[in-house]
Design a protein around this nucleic acid. Structure first.
Lengths: 148, 148
DNA sequence: TTTAATGTAACATCATTAGTTACATGAAAC
DNA sequence: GTTTCATGTAACTAATGATGTTACATTAAA
């Protein structure tokens, strides 16, 4: 199974955009992310539909953040991306008539639901502003570390 | 991405085997699971290597459980299956030089590690004996429900 | 010796993400 | 207005990995 890394990608893109005044083009972002400009447009397009970013066309066009960094959580971004399946493992059949399968599914579902709830709770607790602050901290650390 | 449902499948197979004295053939199990006998042999083969089941060849051959039901946990089975990746979403790049990506990955990894720890903890708390008991309960409930 | 079972390699199928090409559309610069 | 630079989007390709299937060797009991 190929992992869905779009959440990671949009976070990376948004933080780069947050560090700049002018809009960033899909080409620039694609270089930052090591991917293809069309992939950037495709993915950021979902954020645009959700009103989190805006895209300008033509000269001096590009992407900019329109939302408040402190009001956007990882969970919200996950939802904007269409709430892709979080788990790579799961039940064979969600509607089994077999009682054995029902017992198995119930046990697995319990565990997966608990883990999913925790994961989404964690996602809800982290904002873009938090990530930007963490980046600034790392940036600071590298600079002072480099001087010594 | 296609979900890995082997844990669900082996649990289903093991519980069916637990309900019977005689060994069950790959064909029988494949019918129970709605899959192909070779898939059964391939997957149960991992459990055989781990000493949890034994396979007899030739006439009156088939699969039987050799482990104690109360000593085998879902977590152990997950390990026996090679600890497949649990999550369908993740970071783009596990070793980024970019500080932005580092900040993003750190936040996501925190959340995923917490969820994974919880999931494995839940897996460790459930044994095959628990599932068999749950199945018996459901079986009982259906029988008494059907009589009324 | 026949028959019924596993063991296993090799290949086909299917689903999904990511990457790419091609072209239409829109907006600013000249 | 025409050029240029950017997004918007459809359609196709590639890569990945689980699952399904075929084929055949091996083993053990009847």
């Amino acid at each position: 199974m190929k992992r869905d890394s779009r959440l990671s990608a949009v976070l990376h893109a948004l933080l780069h955009m947050a560090e700049r005044i002018e809009p960033m083009t899909s080409d620039e972002l694609a270089q930052c992310l090591g991917t293809h400009p069309v992939v950037v447009r495709r993915t950021l397009g979902l954020l645009r539909e959700a009103g989190l970013v805006a895209a300008g066309r033509g000269h001096a066009g590009g992407w900019r953040i329109t939302a408040d960094l402190s009001s956007v959580t990882l969970r919200q971004l996950h939802e904007v991306l269409g709430e892709p399946a979080l788990f790579a493992v799961g039940n064979r059949d969600e509607n089994p008539g077999c009682l054995v399968e029902q017992a198995v599914n119930a046990a697995l579902d319990d565990a997966f639901e608990a883990a999913e709830a925790l994961l989404l709770e964690r996602f809800a607790a982290v904002t873009l502003a938090d990530l930007a602050a963490d980046f600034a901290r790392r940036h600071q650390a590298r600079r002072s570390g480099g001087k010594r």
